Simulated scan of single mutants.
Amino acid sequence: MTFEEYVGSRGPALLRLARLLTGDEHRAEDLTQDVLARAYVHWRRIVRTERPDVYVRRMLVNANTSWWRRRSSRELAVDAFAERPQRGDLGGEAADRDEMWRLILGLPDRQRAVLVLRYYEDLDDATIAQILDCSPVTVRTHAMRALANLRERCGVPTTNGSRR
């Protein structure tokens, strides 16, 4: 498979994954472009791997994590906090979707990546483990913690009636 064929067939899926990881259209486009530029340089080696798509997805997840680490290590001094703009009435479904994305984007990087890869990319635990360079057990642990975190933020009680 040539690099051009790969990008033609998998490019939209990579961009969708980047959008789900970043929560920002423009950042996702930049992230995808950067990763594909790096993949192009190493394409001969990547295409020889058993599953090139897993390799490139892993590059995407790692690049996003690196960006967040670089960004979070800088301080920005401000005089005062800006007022948060008031949202208009978006309607029930759109408002719920926006709220869910806000909650998902608030998760730690690994938890967010596991949820996106599992529920939006429909990947199994073994494939997610390859992408994130961890074990399938770790993937399940991140998934359980992410879901528990989301339930807690939404005020949903746990099955035994107690809250964590």
Rank of each mutant, 00 (worst) to 15 (best):
A148M: 09
D133A: 11
M144H: 14
R10S: 02
A37W: 06
L31Q: 01
V56F: 01
D89M: 11
R71H: 15
D30T: 06
F3W: 04
A129N: 03
R145F: 09
R112G: 01
Q111P: 02
A80M: 10
Q33M: 13
S162F: 14
A28C: 04
L150T: 04
E25V: 12
T141V: 11
D89E: 14
D34K: 03
A148N: 11
E99P: 01
L31G: 00
Q111M: 08
R151C: 12
E99Y: 07
R57G: 01
R87K: 11
G23K: 01
E50P: 06
M100A: 07
E93M: 09
R51P: 00
W43F: 05
A148I: 06
E93G: 07
A18W: 01
C134G: 09
G161Y: 10
S162Y: 13
D53K: 05
H26M: 13
N160E: 08
L14S: 00
C154S: 14
P136D: 03
R69K: 15
P157T: 13
C154H: 14
A94N: 05
L60M: 14
E83I: 09
S162P: 00
D24N: 15
R87A: 13
R118Q: 14
L115K: 02
V139D: 00
Q130V: 02
E83K: 10
T2F: 01
F3L: 02
R48D: 11
S135T: 14
R84L: 13
I131R: 02
V41A: 15
V54D: 11
N160P: 01
V47T: 06
G23S: 12
Q130T: 03
H26T: 12
A94F: 07
T32K: 12
S66Q: 12
A143I: 05
W67E: 12
W68C: 07
R69H: 15
R74Y: 12
A63L: 07
A95Q: 15
S135C: 08
G92V: 09
R84M: 09
E25H: 12
R45S: 14
R74V: 13
D79I: 12
P157G: 08
A94E: 10
D98V: 13
G91Q: 04
R84A: 10
S73V: 08
R102G: 10
E121D: 11
C134V: 13
G92R: 09
Q130S: 05
Q130A: 04
P85E: 07
V61Q: 00
L17T: 04
H142V: 03
M144D: 13
S73D: 11
L123F: 08
R38V: 06
G88L: 13
V54L: 15
V114L: 04
R69L: 14
E50M: 12
R51H: 05
A146L: 04
L14D: 00
E99D: 06
R69I: 14
R57N: 07
E4D: 09
I46Y: 00
R87H: 10
P52T: 02
G23A: 06
V47F: 03
N149A: 08
G88F: 10
C154Y: 15
R145L: 12
G106E: 12
S135W: 10
R51E: 04
V35S: 01
A39C: 06
E83T: 10
R69N: 14
R48H: 09
G92E: 09
W101D: 12
R71S: 15
G91L: 03
T158C: 05
